[in-house]
């Protein structure tokens, strides 16, 4: 009998295999100097989608943490911040690779490329801020406030700025017919696979943070499940000891 966990692993493996198979068998893109290498988009676009989703999710968790003080939100926020930075870095790396093979240079000063670099820097700054504060409560609050404060500039950089300025990155590459319509299927397949993988990593990373918080996560039983020794605390009225 296959357990639920094995089922999930099996489906995930099938997703991975089908995503790779689809990417390799999809027709070459037209209108690109290196049509076969336009397949980078299969990975590049989903990474950007996942990174953007994680950025918004981090800000939401930061807001919830500041509003409620519930450390579960901070544990999830820490995970989302790190994963967001990782996916933003992957988006950047694949974008730079695409730029080299299709446009002939690693860096194009393209508005979208530049604005996403700043998004990546903001994500890294969020990670650095959390790492820079040794007091975990301060780190949690500061990271939460930073994620809330930076979400609007990031959304501006992702969605608004590249559309104000002329970019190498037309938003209608696929719909205009430069890429085969079937590319959307590939992008979607990889996106689902990445979301699945992200969810697993997110859960694992959150569990690490939650373990650090220990029994604070159970407000109904403060101290009841402590793995740490309880130090002796005594309150006595002055003079009682002498009387005894």
């Amino acid at each position: 009998m296959i357990s639920a966990m094995n089922w999930r692993a099996l489906v995930f493996c099938l997703l991975c295999v089908s995503a790779v198979a689809y990417a390799l068998t999809a027709p070459d893109a037209s209108g690109f100097p290196e049509p076969s290498l336009a397949r980078i988009i299969f990975f590049h676009l989903p990474c950007a989608f996942v990174a953007t989703g994680l950025i918004v999710h981090t800000a939401w968790l930061g807001y919830r943490y500041l509003a409620t003080g519930d450390v579960r939100y901070d544990a999830r926020g820490a995970a989302a911040t790190e994963l967001g930075a990782i996916f933003a870095a992957l988006t950047m790396a694949t974008g730079v690779l695409f730029s080299k093979v299709q446009w002939g240079a690693w860096w194009q000063n393209d508005p979208r490329q530049t604005s996403f670099l700043i998004v990546l820097l903001l994500c890294c700054a969020g990670v650095a801020l959390r790492a820079g504060l040794s007091d975990e409560q301060k780190a949690a609050k500061a990271s939460a406030a930073y994620s809330v404060a930076t979400v609007l500039p990031m959304l501006f950089l992702i969605f608004v700025l590249p559309r104000i300025l002329q970019s190498f990155h037309p938003s209608d590459t696929i719909s205009s017919g430069k890429l085969d319509g079937a590319y959307w299927t590939g992008v979607l397949l990889v996106f689902v696979t990445l979301v699945w993988a992200t969810r697993v990593l997110y859960k694992e990373r959150t569990a690490i943070s939650e373990n650090r918080y220990g029994n604070q996560l159970d407000p109904d039983h403060p101290g009841s499940a402590s793995p740490y020794p309880r130090r002796p605390v005594a309150v006595s009225k002055v003079g009682e000891e002498e009387e005894r």
């Binding site: 700043i118 820097l121 903001l122 700054a125 969020g126 650095a128 801020l129 820079g132 504060l133 040794s134 007091d135 301060k138 500061a142 406030a145 930073y146 404060a149 930076t150 500039p153």
Partner: peptide
Amino acid sequence: LVIGATNRWMLAGVVALPL
């Protein structure tokens, strides 16, 4: 935000510049 951090000055620059 960086009050309490060990390397406050550098961290202030790191978090401020992208913003």
